[in-house]
Measured scan of single mutants.
Amino acid sequence: QTIHNGDQTYHYDNPEEAIKVAQKLAKIYNLTVTVKGNTVQVH
């Protein structure tokens, strides 16, 4: 599972963990989380 947060990319073995982290980032920075296959984008 990969999270793209602007210019930063994070890799997680656990998809659920990746989505949790993405949602935390989204709340902190007031962003949107988009899940596309194995990629979670925060923008």
Rank of each mutant, 00 (worst) to 15 (best):
A22W: 07
I19S: 07
T39N: 05
H43M: 06
D13V: 06
H43K: 07
Q41C: 15
A18F: 03
D7Y: 15
D7A: 12
K36H: 13
E17H: 06
K20I: 07
N30P: 03
Q23F: 05
T39D: 05
D13L: 08
G6C: 14
H4L: 10
T39F: 05
E17M: 12
T34C: 08
Y10F: 11
V42E: 00
D7H: 15
T2M: 12
G6D: 08
T32K: 10
Q41S: 11
N38C: 14
V40I: 10
V33L: 03
Q1I: 13
E17F: 06
K24M: 15
H43I: 08
N30T: 04
V33H: 00
T39A: 05
Q8P: 06
T2D: 10
Q23K: 10
I3N: 11
D7E: 08
E16A: 09
I3P: 10
Q23G: 04
K24C: 15
V33K: 00
T39V: 11
H4M: 11
K36S: 13
V40Y: 00
Y29S: 07
H11F: 12
Q1R: 02
E16H: 07
Q8N: 08
K20R: 13
Q8L: 13
Y29T: 09
V21Y: 08
H43Y: 06
Q23D: 11
V33Y: 00
D13A: 14
P15V: 10
T39M: 09
T39P: 00
G6Y: 13
G37H: 03
Q41N: 07
Q41H: 14
L25C: 09
Q23P: 00
K24W: 15
A22S: 03
H11G: 03
K20Q: 08
Y12T: 03
Q8I: 14
V42A: 02
G6K: 11
L31S: 03
T34V: 08
Q23M: 09
V35T: 02
V33R: 00
I3F: 09
V40R: 00
V42T: 03
A18Q: 01
I3G: 10
G37V: 02
K20T: 06
H4V: 11
N14A: 04
Y10H: 04
H11N: 05
K24A: 14
I28N: 09
V35P: 00
N38V: 05
D7P: 14
N30M: 06
V40P: 01
Y29R: 06
D7V: 15
V21T: 05
K36V: 14
N14D: 09
G37W: 03
T9W: 14
A18W: 05
I3S: 11
N38K: 04
N5C: 14
G6V: 12
T39Q: 06
G6E: 08
A22R: 00
K36N: 12
L25D: 02
T9I: 15
V35F: 02
N5T: 12
D13T: 08
A22G: 06
N38Q: 04
T2C: 13
E17K: 07
D13S: 13
T39W: 07
V35Y: 02
